[in-house]
Amino acid sequence: MVPSTSKRDITIKTPDGVARACVFRNGQAKAGIILYMDAFGPRPALYDMAARLAGSGYAVLVPDLFYRDTPYGPFDAKTAFVEEKSKAALTALISGTTQDMTARDSGAFIAALEAEGIRGPIGAVGYCMGGGRAINAAAAYPDKIAAAASFHGGRLGTDAPDSPASNAGKIKARVYVGSAGVDGSFPPEQSARLAQALRQAEVDHIIENYVGMQHGWCVSDHSVYDAAGAERHWKRLIDFFGETLG
């Protein structure tokens, strides 16, 4: 964890129950950020990322998106989709926690940051399954979320009603998408469809292809973690939030 960055466990009342979450901050926060988890849930690897982001001057909220199904896991990010039992459990958690559910929850996540004293614009960043949820949160709360970033997010450019491409017209935030060089969950045709939808909606956006990176490269406990690629992601993300949130 980044020195002098504090971590506090909280609970958040949502329309569907109570979600556990952690808040990270380093001194006086200039803005708030919601970090939408990947499929393996809140854990030390994500907490380290939240602490690093908080070190740039933000209050960072890491909510448990799977709170409706607790207890679950823990999961090993390196093997969870290889072992049949854990793969089945993860698949059920992901399919059972819909984009619409997370969009509803995001109103409570924003309120939790406001209870932390955040009064200015809010950012969102998501990894893997959290990538689309961060962008859809910006669509659901356009007057609250000013910046949304996705890294190795999947299904961002399908024609499904809950795809970020389908919701582009509702977005007022700036959007950054970092895609893995080869990623079956976000192939080139989806990237093109998302780019077209964002451009037609006049959304300020960047879609960047990280050549040579694999799905999950940003998160340190993934088997495909790439240290150099992760540092590149950090530079892009911190600059993106700095330009947009201050």
Rank of each mutant, 00 (worst) to 15 (best):
S150Y: 07
L61M: 04
E83F: 07
T5Q: 01
E83Q: 10
D38F: 05
A77M: 13
T91W: 03
D64C: 15
V219F: 00
L61C: 05
V211W: 09
L61Y: 07
I145L: 12
S223M: 11
N26H: 15
R236P: 00
S163Y: 12
A180T: 08
I118Y: 06
G178K: 06
L90C: 05
S56D: 12
E231V: 00
G154A: 15
D48Y: 01
D239V: 05
K7R: 14
A165N: 09
L53P: 00
F75P: 06
M1H: 00
A134N: 05
L35T: 04
V125N: 01
E208D: 13
G153D: 13
D204M: 03
K87P: 00
A39N: 10
T11E: 15
M49G: 01
Y58H: 07
E243H: 13
E84G: 00
L53I: 08
R104K: 11
R25Y: 03
A165T: 09
I34L: 08
A227D: 12
A112K: 14
A149T: 00
T98K: 10
V125G: 02
E208L: 08
H222R: 15
L113C: 12
F81K: 10
M213V: 04
A138C: 08
V224S: 10
E231A: 08
Y210M: 13
A173K: 03
S220N: 13
Y210S: 03
V23S: 09
G55Q: 07
A139K: 03
Y72R: 15
D105E: 07
Q200P: 00
V219R: 05
N209S: 12
L237M: 09
S95N: 14
A197P: 02
N209Q: 10
A140N: 02
R52E: 06
S163C: 12
F109I: 09
A148C: 04
Y36E: 01
D159F: 06
L113I: 12
S223F: 08
G73M: 12
D159Q: 13
P188T: 04
I94K: 11
P44E: 07
A19G: 11
F66P: 10
T79M: 12
Q190S: 04
G229A: 03
K7L: 05
G17S: 15
L245H: 08
V219D: 01
A31M: 08
R104N: 09
R52N: 02
V23K: 03
P44H: 04
A160W: 00
A111G: 13
W217E: 11
H222Q: 14
A59G: 04
G216L: 08
D48G: 02
Y36S: 01
V82K: 13
S220I: 12
Q200D: 12
I118N: 04
Y141G: 07
I34D: 02
S163K: 08
A148K: 04
A29N: 05
K172H: 14
G184M: 11
L194T: 01
G246V: 01
S4W: 02
V62C: 13
G120A: 08
K235L: 01
F241Q: 04
Q200S: 11
